[in-house]
């Protein structure tokens, strides 16, 4: 059976619903404190999927995700590298995405070349947004065209030099872009909730196995999470599909 490790500690706070998402998708799960990976009580190699949930690691002080990324880099970079080299899967959601960007395993390993910074509004915002997927190599979003999910962040604007953005496009690494309800991609605020470059909401690495996004798929696991479920027909929690994709892939390729 596929095993997913959900990282916790130091202010990570979406671990409960992220773990639930992977269970619903058919994975075994373990919530593991960062320090248990650092002190060797738990090992990444025992899992096929790594999830960095949302939250406020270190209170978002200095820069969101930065301090936890530093802690991981300083203390567990070897096992993270091995995990990724083994072709395993990872997802970073919201604060987890910020950690991935600042740790620099997204968009690729090496020096940090893109960042997530303050929303143009200057505020933290919680609202639901439409996203268009399509054309990326990301295995997490396979078969998904449009998504409607909540964003809940103050630092979600993706910024990178033009050359990096171009490379992401060329390599099919742009996974999700904010859009209008009808799917058109020139979405302005509040449809693009943070002013992100090209409306980018999520990207993957060059393999398509490592995925980071600002919106919260684990916030839409049940129809009753949808803001309008009392007036529209909502067949299922659409966020669940991302987790199913990953678990199915891991079942086939990694177990």
């Amino acid at each position: 059976m596929v095993k997913t490790i959900i990282m916790t500690g130091y202010g990570i706070n979406c671990d409960y619903e992220t773990e639930h998402a992977f269970r619903l998708a058919g994975s075994e799960t373990d919530k593991v404190h960062v320090n248990e990976l650092i002190n060797g009580k738990k090992r990444l190699e025992d899992y096929q999927i790594l999830a960095l949930p949302g939250g406020f690691s270190y209170g978002d002080d200095i820069a969101a995700g930065k301090i936890l990324a530093n802690k991981m880099l300083a203390n567990m970079s070897a096992q993270v590298k091995q995990f990724l080299d083994d072709g395993k899967l990872a997802i970073g959601i919201c604060n987890g995405f910020q950690v991935m960007m600042k740790y620099a395993f997204l968009p690729r390993s090496g020096p940090q070349e893109a960042t997530l910074t303050f929303n143009d509004s200057g505020k933290f915002e919680d609202r639901w947004v439409y996203m268009k997927s399509g054309g990326s190599k990301c295995i997490w979003t396979k078969g998904i065209d449009q998504l409607y999910l909540p964003v809940r962040h103050g630092e979600g604007k993706l910024v990178a030099p033009d050359s990096v953005i171009q490379r992401l496009k060329d390599n099919s690494q742009i996974v999700l872009r904010y859009c209008s309800p009808d799917g058109s991609l020139d979405a302005k605020y509040p449809l693009n909730p943070n002013g992100s470059t090209d409306g980018i909401a999520g990207i993957c690495d060059e393999t398509g196995r490592v995925f980071g996004l600002m919106p919260h798929p684990e916030g839409f696991l049940y129809p009753t999470n949808h803001p309008r479920w009392t007036r529209e027909s909502v067949p299922e929690g659409a966020g669940l599909r991302l987790f199913r994709n990953a678990v199915e892939y891991a079942e086939k390729e990694l177990v």
């Binding site: 706070n13 979406c14 409960y16 619903e17 639930h20 949302g54 505020k123 933290f124 915002e125 919680d126 609202r127 909540p150 809940r152 919260h216 684990e218 916030g219 696991l221 009753t224 999470n225 803001p227 309008r228 009392t230 007036r231």
Partner: peptide
């Protein structure tokens, strides 16, 4: 809107609702 009213995944009737 500035408050995360959905974390922990159990949000069912939100503070602002409707069409």
């Amino acid at each position: 809107r500035q408050y995360d009213h959905e974390v922990q995944g159990g949000s069912t009737i939100k503070p602002f609702i409707g069409a």
